[in-house]
Design a protein around this nucleic acid. Structure first.
Lengths: 231, 231
DNA sequence: GACATAAATGGAACGTCGTTCCAAGATATT
DNA sequence: AATATCTTGGAACGACGTTCCATTTATGTC
């Protein structure tokens, strides 16, 4: 490839500066995923970006699924380790949930990766953070599991839909607004006799605020927990 | 978008008995997905089952994604058109949610397909059914959207996790119980200083009842809606 | 410094996938 | 019977995840 093949490494550095490492691979994977979406992560593209061959990557990473989960975990860890202002457990729960929403909004592929790695480290990080607040809130032991898994399921559900929306829009070359607009048109054209609700609510689709709706859902669950604690 | 304009077909002789059709293809796809999971659906396997070539299938179906969504829609339509006993709107909402849970439990790939087809027909069917009950319940117009999307997100979230669990377990050749057991072991071995909640709750993992937990989450949201209506 | 051992690399190759292409067969129309 | 259209199915393309292995680079030993 290069004409002047013999580039004398002057220094006696411990390792090649540009040597591979799990960390460098994961960083490159994140960059690829952010730039080109879920389908942008390939061992070939990764090798190209890291100036090596596909085979070399397998020395540091078992397979693609592990790599994707590791990339996902890096983002989730960053979001879940962010310091939070001291506040009531409920306010903290809202902040945790919003942190995940924003992380998935910035990296839609994380929503999809999270959905495909149930019970793995990334999900456990979220579970842990939520669970600690539930204990501060005084949720009785026998209701801990159902409560934490309800919150987690909701967060993963919204995240997964956001990821799918982003991927769908990208596949059709649309931005979010145009994608929602075309969806609203499709819904509007549904038979009002068969789909009275969907066709009547279609026009609200393009103008709604995902983030606000997400938070409203969290508040709905928190309100339900509160009324359970009192009743 | 139009179905199929040519309605000549006065004669009785339909076509070859074993000729291809969209319906026959979708049925075969469902059988393949049920038997071998998400990765079992291949145009080659489908062609083999239908005794034809891969190219012929493309005359009736645009691509794999459309086929998967159509197969998903067939299952969802079956679940959402099931007759429900007349009951309070809240009881009907619970029945609708449970119907989706059971459908995904019987066909885990539906959970994953639903998550990848946001705003498409299968999801709209669920949205519609839920929305109609919300109107009977008297939810004010300005809260319709956030309420229905909270319920839908939760249902899709649980469904997606169930699908992922099933796929993960199948990939490792385990049944559900063994998979949860191995997950519980992993969680138990987490550092209790860093993961006090996850490690302490790990032992509840193998024995919990997915269906009951799902319903508890639905009730949590319904309770939140009720307290909102009163407050 | 020379040698042996192990770690790490990268390019070629395998098998599978979704999809496209097209020559041939089947059916409908004149 | 001839023509036009719908439908089929097998071959082929390009891209993917992954494996294999000859080669290079670093480390430890005398």
């Amino acid at each position: 490839m290069s004409i002047c093949g013999m580039v004398k490494k002057t220094s006696g550095a411990p390792r090649r500066e540009e040597s591979l490492s799990r960390e460098r691979i994961i960083d490159a994977a994140i960059a690829l995923l952010d730039d080109a979406g879920e389908s942008g992560l390939t061992f070939r593209a990764l090798a190209l970006k890291l100036v090596t061959g596909p085979g070399a990557i397998y020395w540091h990473v078992a397979n693609k699924s592990e790599l994707l989960t590791a990339a996902c975990d890096a983002i989730v860890a960053r979001a879940m380790n962010a310091p939070l202002a001291d506040a009531t457990p409920e306010a903290t729960l809202r902040a945790i949930a919003l942190g995940m929403f924003d992380a998935i909004d910035a990296h839609p592929w994380v929503g999809s990766a999270l959905a495909h790695a149930p019970g793995q480290l990334p999900a456990v990080r979220i579970l842990e953070r939520i669970g600690q607040q539930l204990r501060l809130l005084g949720v009785p032991r026998e209701r801990e599991w159902t409560t934490v898994s309800a919150l987690l399921s909701y967060i993963l559900g919204v995240g997964g839909q956001n990821a799918a929306n982003a991927q769908f829009a990208q596949a059709e070359g649309l931005n979010r607004a145009d994608f929602l607009e075309s969806l609203a048109n499709t819904w509007s054209e549904l038979d009002p006799a068969e789909y009275p609700f969907a066709s009547s609510i279609a026009r609200q689709l393009p103008d709604h605020d995902d983030r606000a709706d997400f938070l409203t859902g969290i508040d709905l669950i928190l309100k339900g927990m509160r009324s359970l604690r009192r009743g």
